[in-house]
Design a protein around this nucleic acid. Sequence first.
DNA 1: CCTCTCATGTAAGACGTTACATGATTCA
DNA 2: TGAATCATGTAACGTCTTACATGAGAGG
Lengths: 181, 181
Amino acid sequence: MSIRHTILGLLHYRDLHGYRIKEVIEQNFGHMWTINFGQIYPNLKKMLAEELITVREVVRLGEKGPPRKLYSITEAGKNEFTDWLAISPENGMLLRDPFLMRFVFFGFGDKNRAVEIIDDRIGEFQQQLKKREENLETWERNDIYVNLMAELGIKMNRLLLEWMEESRKRIIEAETVGAAV
Amino acid sequence: MSIRHTILGLLHYRDLHGYRIKEVIEQNFGHMWTINFGQIYPNLKKMLAEELITVREVVRLGEKGPPRKLYSITEAGKNEFTDWLAISPENGMLLRDPFLMRFVFFGFGDKNRAVEIIDDRIGEFQQQLKKREENLETWERNDIYVNLMAELGIKMNRLLLEWMEESRKRIIEAETVGAAV
DNA sequence: CCTCTCATGTAAGACGTTACATGATTCA
DNA sequence: TGAATCATGTAACGTCTTACATGAGAGG
């Protein structure tokens, strides 16, 4: 029930069509979200039926290709959104990472393979961090909350990198002393 | 497909029954997981049929209450698990937090209410951090990977607390200058 | 010419959550 | 007596992911 509200939130800034919504979510909340068209289009359809959003414009790109539908938020949509904003968020944070899930059990597998997997991950995180730092410099957004969120993404990225590098060291050191488990 | 592997991983340490599996997951991976019996029992049933696990013992507590079934991992289960361990983790990290989702859009709502919600969250995170720090001291586990994971949980907790306190300051300061959006 | 990006949409299936049913024991 | 904890399990319902179908235009 939060894709709906995220879409409503984004439509406060500007009118968007489905494809663009996915891009905006990935650019801004990429460090916490993945989203599919299989979620976006059915939700837009439903919200349109509930009159929380309207279609402002239909742009035909080709004669037979799909038309681009520009959605905008209605008064009813704004009300639903502000109600949701004021509610105290219910359940806690959820961090799900296939890498971290394997990590806890690396003691039952091959240590060299574990270090290999960690190295791959360090590489990915270094690339990601660079991209995020570049984004923060060039964007220059004026909304304080959006900026703070972007900063959190970079801070988390840095923390995970440091932690992985320290973990790598400690795992290699432990290897010379003796096997765990 | 990772609940299965998590269960198989835990059964490497010791035999467990369904109810206990939930407790162990929440204690050890509470900072990244929530799990329900509606997921655990059907998965155990399926894995039993696939002979990845076996029932070692059935303990009757009362005459008509449900018996406690102790599961242990089979050789086939160990093989499936080690195969899974060596695979490079596919898709990236996923952080889903109802609080952070609202946070980005606080600019469209009431600032005082936003600060209120942030304060609630700071309180919760302070309590959580204390518990985790106490746990780390008393547990004294010998598996390096499990320890590193627990440390990551504390580090993330600290980072989020600092970030929220800084955010709170900046939001209040911004209030005196002028409204955003 | 072939692949990539833009663009919308549906359907099937995997996965997760919530609610319910059952019943013993422990503690206030 | 009544609530809480221990313990297993199913059913219904939501949500999320993956795969597919369609088709235009741009660029190598």
